[in-house]
């Protein structure tokens, strides 16, 4: 993956592997995933549902260490110098909610309906930073103002159900930002929102990153959102990274046929016929030995099915997992 050996790298994931339980036993659904996210960078993870992008995020957050349905089987998650995967539960909790924060897709269910929003924002401030009840409350109000909730001093005493979906997602952002995290993971934070509200949220996230300078992992299946907000992007397919690079370069010049297919699926303003990638991604545990995209790839050759394809790093900092990458000229979007 991208080699960035400077002090500006906030998070480095190395060869992460995650298995999930299927009726037929454990199946690898995240395989050798490596990522690096710089301070102040928004890194977009994109892929179809089931591609492993959310599990990667959950593994980084330390949310699947003790689950019966999923387990991390290898790799490192380095936040600074600390490998989060090697920490005890107790030590991990010291990071969760403080250095690491997460915003989920469902604004309805990720806030506790029984507590006021000030309580929920203040909880981690008191737990991690040892603030008093009063300090936590003042800080909560500041945070609510920062995420654009009007009349924050009054509204901080409201309960989650008194907020609309978009406003709740803003509250979630305030909860996540409470302890000035070094890494924010946003798992499809705008997917459940209306386009108009999504536009507000994207603008807000962008400005918060500029102000706080944290690293962000932004998970989405919408390339439009990637183009709009992310600096760098990593494309997932069937549990593997198949392409990564700067957003502008990936969109203008994709090097993997799957990325090209995703780009072509995005409706354009012109009247080109609708495009889609035929077939569906392989099920966990049923991946072929060669290139995983090969059965759906229009450029596929015999050699694609026989040899596993390594992720190759190119000179310009892009990474591509395609045996034919050098011979193909693929179309992107300007």
């Amino acid at each position: 993956m991208t080699v960035q050996d400077s002090a500006t790298t906030a998070l480095r994931v190395k060869e992460l592997c995650v298995d999930v339980a299927t009726p037929e036993g454990w199946a690898t659904v995240v395989e050798d995933v490596s990522l690096a996210v710089d301070v102040g960078e928004i890194h977009g993870l994109v892929g179809e549902s089931g591609s492993g992008k959310s599990l990667t995020a959950m593994a980084i957050m330390g949310l699947i260490t003790h689950s019966q349905s999923a387990r991390v089987t290898g790799g490192e998650v380095l936040l600074g110098d600390v490998d989060l995967l090697k920490l005890s539960n107790r030590d991990l909790r010291r990071h969760q909610g403080k250095d690491l924060a997460m915003v989920f897709q469902e604004p309805m269910t990720s806030l506790n309906p029984a507590f006021t929003v000030a309580d929920q924002i203040g909880e981690s401030i008191r737990y991690h930073l040892g603030a008093s009840r009063k300090e936590a409350r003042e800080r909560s109000i500041e945070l609510l103002e920062e995420v654009g909730i009007a009349d924050a001093r009054r509204r901080c005493n409201d309960y989650p159900h008194q907020f609309s979906g978009g406003m709740r997602q803003r509250v979630m952002l305030a909860v996540a930002l409470a302890c000035e995290p070094r890494l924010l993971i946003a798992d499809e934070p705008t997917t459940a929102l209306d386009v108009t509200v999504q536009a507000q949220m994207l603008e807000l996230i962008r400005s918060l990153v500029e102000r706080h300078g944290m690293a962000v992992i932004f998970i989405t299946h919408d390339l439009g959102v990637i183009a709009e907000i992310c600096d760098r992007t990593t494309v997932f397919y069937a549990g593997q990274v198949i392409e990564s690079g700067l957003v502008g370069e990936v969109i203008k010049g994709p090097r993997h046929p799957y990325t090209e297919g995703l780009l072509r699926s995005v409706p354009a303003d012109d009247d080109l016929p609708l495009w889609w990638i035929d077939g569906s991604p392989p099920l966990p545990g049923q991946v072929s030995s060669g290139c995983r995209f090969s059965p759906r790839c229009e450029y596929s050759k015999n050699e694609c099915d026989t040899h596993a394809v390594p992720l190759r790093l190119s000179a310009d900092g892009r990474a591509i997992r395609c045996a034919l990458a050098d011979d193909l000229s693929l179309n992107g979007r300007d």
């Binding site: 889609w276 035929d278 077939g279 569906s280 392989p282 099920l283 049923q286 072929s288 059965p295 759906r296």
Partner: peptide, 10 residues
């Protein structure tokens, strides 16, 4: 348009 059998590998 056919989606192709998801279980074609089965």
């Amino acid at each position: 348009p056919s989606e192709g059998a998801a279980g074609s590998t089965t």
